[in-house]
């Protein structure tokens, strides 16, 4: 009987040096396939975790299970911090100019226009603020999704293939942002099959499907 996923409702208060997220004996079944099982680990403040594996090995499913969007077939996840997820969908209204589409999320998250401007600047998207989201390229839309993540200002980031479609300059910028986030006490879990600088990261390698 899979547990029902209840994202963020089961956040426990931070006590001392408790990890932001810990999980034990996780297993995931998609359709009739057992994608992975017996996964355990934890991420504390300033920590990082890299999930690697070939296509179809269940990297994205693991992120969704950790986020609480997908129930695990077995095992449990304890979340002690708000979670920000950036996957291949930027969650932006494609008809709106970039700054307006991001402004919607700023209102949801209770942030100001200045937070949007700062986040846009961090990913060098300020020149595109008046361009409709539909006209952005793959990499630009990816960066726009990361801007939304910055605005959300959650301590724990879950990034699904964040470097997909990014040019080398943007990757360097992302690495700087991640490092700053960890220095400020945040944590990051990245699912990727591409190289990305992540000092002192724990590794979880998922097998082939």
């Amino acid at each position: 009987m899979p547990q029902s996923a209840a994202p963020c409702h089961d956040i426990l208060p931070v006590s001392g040096t408790a990890p932001l997220l810990s999980f034990a004996a996780l297993a995931c079944v998609r359709g009739d396939n057992l994608l992975w099982r017996g996964l355990s680990g934890e991420v504390g403040a300033g920590g990082a975790m890299r999930i690697s594996g070939p296509n179809g090995s269940g990297k994205s499913s693991l992120l969704r299970v950790l986020a609480g969007l997908l129930p695990a077939a077995h095992g449990q996840v304890v979340r002690r911090a708000a979670i920000g997820l950036a996957d291949e969908r930027a969650a932006l209204d494609s008809a709106l100019p970039l700054a307006h589409a991001l402004g919607f999320w700023a209102r949801i998250y209770g942030k100001r226009a200045s937070d949007v401007a700062r986040a846009l600047d961090a990913l060098a998207l300020t020149p595109l603020r008046d361009v409709p989201v539909a006209y952005l390229s793959t990499g630009q839309r990816r960066r726009a999704g990361l801007v939304r993540l910055l605005i959300a200002d959650a301590p724990l980031w879950l990034l699904d293939e964040p470097t997909n479609g990014l040019d080398s300059q943007s990757i360097a910028r992302l690495e700087t942002i991640i490092a700053a986030h960890r220095t400020a006490g945040g944590a990051v879990i990245i699912a990727t099959h591409l190289p990305i600088a992540l000092a002192g990261a724990q590794e979880i390698a998922l097998g082939a499907a």
């Binding site: 963020c8 997820l85 969650a91 999320w105």
Partner: peptide
């Protein structure tokens, strides 16, 4: 667009 997931993550 993924907005439904983001709503859920924001509780």
């Amino acid at each position: 667009s993924g907005a439904l997931d983001q709503y859920a993550l924001h509780a």
